[in-house]
Structure formats: structure tokens, C-alpha cells
Design a protein around this nucleic acid. Structure first.
Lengths: 205, 205
DNA sequence: GGCATTATTAACTTTTTAGTTAAACTTTCT
DNA sequence: AGAAAGTTTAACTAAAAAGTTAATAATGCC
């Protein structure tokens, strides 16, 4: 019996549909009928493959949490000077959240609504260790005076904030500035350079 | 007939309860029974005062949207140098979101789920104009060389991001860093100074 | 006091949505 | 071919939540 070795097409279709609907509407707002429609199958199949709405959601959530922080090991491990690393990180990160614009808000909302879920899941991901190493590198470079000294925790919060928050609040910005989708996307692309420069200037010794 | 001139106690109790539950659980997650319980009244009274869940929600939402940006006119209008204004703004803003920690995520989530709602509501608030004036001041100070030149839109997005995002992602940070509520709050208070300094250094000519 | 208006409730109906079942269809194995 | 296991569906039930109603209690008015 080779069960579970290979995902059936139906199972994948369900997961994709569920991902789409859950991310768009959240756990509470999502409807199983909508997921079934989206996947082009009967609702009963959802229960056949995944016992319940909750279980299906957890599957999606667990899979997503690994993607919250993409794999930046290559950047971190490289021997480039820290300013370049940060610049590269910012570019890559803004690209990443631009390609997955709904991911941050989804994760933040659902973790907020059920913090325990995330606590239970910690350790399943190595991303924290990578961030820790990054922080350690920062301290080293601060000590040799290549960049100005900041609390590394806050510095990393700053970098993350600058990259993620405008994506999360896109609809708010859009409404306030009365911009169309295309114009706003241009602004968000500009940010790669603006944010890089902002951080660079702040860190310049 | 003096109707609607003075809010009845019951109406206020309902609004307060609804605010609490809606902010905590969102439109989809909130239950009318829970709101009624919280307000200490019968569920039918909700319909007596506000026709439907949707209508009640809109009332709350409309009231909240004005609070998204508190009134900073005093700071903006003062004659202090721009660095001091920004520093004061950051302190006040972090205080504000710390006191209303659930507000930003609530607004962002619901605006994201129904962008039209916010677009319909624009103009009801004067906050945008204040921000515009702030941006204009920045440009002036950049021209006379008191602060380094940045795109003012991005600069304001940066300031907002640094103040708001860590509050929004509090549960995520808490889970990752394995901190208790008290310790995390200390870190968020530290941010007032860290963020001020970060921006100050970035802007220093 | 008693009548009219407003406020409040318990119990009910309706609607929505998650979850189940039994039967039909497919695939696979011998 | 045909039995067994796996897959899929239409139609159903159960549960939860929104919304309604008709009767009761409180309030203000003459």
C-alpha cells in the first residue's frame, strides 16, 4: 500500500482552493461550499480527505507558517559586508511579500486570533535560527564600527516593519491616496530602493 | 420629540460590547449572542436598536475609522524643528497604538476584507489633510537642508510602519521570542526611543 | 390612576453552514 | 470478468447563528 506517498490530484486541488479561500476570508469567513466549488468537487470530499474545516485549516496554516520567513540562509552566510546583506535582504523581502501579498496579514490575523496554535508549532521551522545568526553578525559589525550601534532586536524589527507593513496596509493606503492598483504597485516597488537607502543612512557610522 | 439627541444607556452598552467583540473576533467571528451577553441584555434588543449585525458593525467601523489616526494637529502646527516634531510624533503614536493595540489590525483586516467600505467613507475624516501638511513641512525642511532628502510619502510610510507594525505582529513576536506579556511590553516601550533614534540618524544631513 | 409610548424579554422561525450517509462510479488486482 | 478497495456524488441531518414576534415591563404624560 503506497498510500500518502503521492498526493492525489484531488487532494492538491482541495488544498489549493482552501489556501485561496482561507487566505482571502480567514478561518471564520471561509465557507466549505466555496472551497469545494473553487476546487470543482463535492463538499463531502473535503470531509473524505480532511476530517473537518478546522483540520483543513490547520494543514494550510502549518504549511504557510514555514513560508512566513523565506530562506535567506544564502544571503546571511555570504561574506559580503553587512550593508550589502541588508540591502539584498530588503530587496528580496519586498519581492517576496509583493509576490505573496496576502500572506503576512493572513498569518498575523490568525496568529492573533489563536496565539496558541503558533506556539504549538514553534520549532518546526529553522527560520528563527537564521535570524539569530543575522543578529549576531550585526553585533559583530557594530563592534568593529562598520555600522552604527543599534539594539539588534529593534533593528531587525525595523527592517521587517519597513518591508511588510506597507504591503499589509495596501488597501488602507490605496483608499487614502485614491490610487489604482497599478500606481500603488509602482510605489511599493520604489520602496525597495527607498527603504534600502533609509536603513543605509541610519546605519552609516 | 427629543429622540437621538441623547444616547440611551442601553444603546451605549451595546456599542461598547459590540466594539469589544468585533475588534477581538472580527465581523465574521463575532456572535450576536456574545455581544448581547457582554452588554448584559437580550439579543432582540440588538435588533431593536440596530437593524442587523451588518448595520451594527458599520456603526462601530465608522466610529473607529476616525480614530485610526489620532489628532496630531497640535504637534504639526507647532513651531518646533522637524526632528523634534517627528520624535514627538513617534512617541505619541507608539503610546496611542499601545493603548489601542487591537485597533490597527482590526482596521487593516476589515478594510482588506471590504475595501469599498472605506472608500465610501473617505472625506468624513480630516486626518489626511493633517498628514499632507506634515509632508509639506518635511519637503520644506529638506530643501533648506535641515534634514536629508527622502521621498516624503515613503518617509511617512516608514514612520508609520515602524510605529504600527510591531504592535500588529505582537503575538507573532511573542511566540517567536517566547516572551511573556510584560517583557514584550517593555520592548515595545523601548521602541519609542529606538525608533526615534533610528529615524533621527537616517534623516541627519 | 390610567393610557400611550418606549424598552425589554422569552420563545420562536429562518437561514446558513458544517458535517453525514448511502448509493454510484472508478480503479486495481487476480 | 468480477470482487475489493478507493473515490465521488446527491441528498440528507444537525448545529449554530441571525433575525422575528408577541407578550410583558417600565416610563412618561394628562
Amino acid at each position: 500500500m503506497a498510500e500518502a506517498l503521492e498526493l492525489s490530484t484531488t487532494e492538491q486541488k482541495i488544498l489549493e482552493a482552501a489556501k485561496k479561500v482561507f487566505i482571502q476570508k480567514g478561518l471564520d469567513g471561509a465557507r466549505l461550499d466555496e472551497i469545494a466549488n473553487e476546487a470543482g468537487i463535492n463538499k463531502a470530499l473535503l470531509h473524505y480527505y480532511f476530517k473537518s474545516k478546522e483540520k483543513l485549516f490547520e494543514k494550510i496554516f502549518d504549511e504557510m507558517i514555514g513560508k512566513l520567513l523565506p530562506d535567506f540562509s544564502a544571503i546571511i552566510e555570504s561574506q559580503n559586508p553587512i550593508e550589502e546583506k541588508i540591502e539584498f535582504f530588503v530587496h528580496k523581502y519586498i519581492d517576496f511579500v509583493s509576490e505573496n501579498p496576502q500572506l503576512p496579514l493572513f498569518m498575523v490575523t490568525e496568529i492573533n486570533r489563536n496565539p496558541q496554535r503558533m506556539k504549538d508549532l514553534l520549532g518546526h521551522t529553522q527560520n528563527f535560527i537564521i535570524l539569530q545568526r543575522f543578529a549576531f553578525q550585526m553585533i559583530t559589525e557594530m563592534q568593529v564600527g562598520r555600522i552604527k550601534s543599534f539594539n539588534p532586536l529593534h533593528l531587525m524589527l525595523n527592517i521587517m516593519s519597513l518591508c511588510i507593513f506597507p504591503i499589509i496596509s495596501k488597501p488602507v493606503i490605496q483608499a487614502i491616496l485614491q490610487l489604482n492598483e497599478a500606481d500603488l504597485n509602482i510605489i511599493l516597488q520604489q520602496r525597495k530602493e527607498e527603504v534600502s537607502r533609509f536603513i543605509r543612512e541610519a546605519l552609516r557610522p
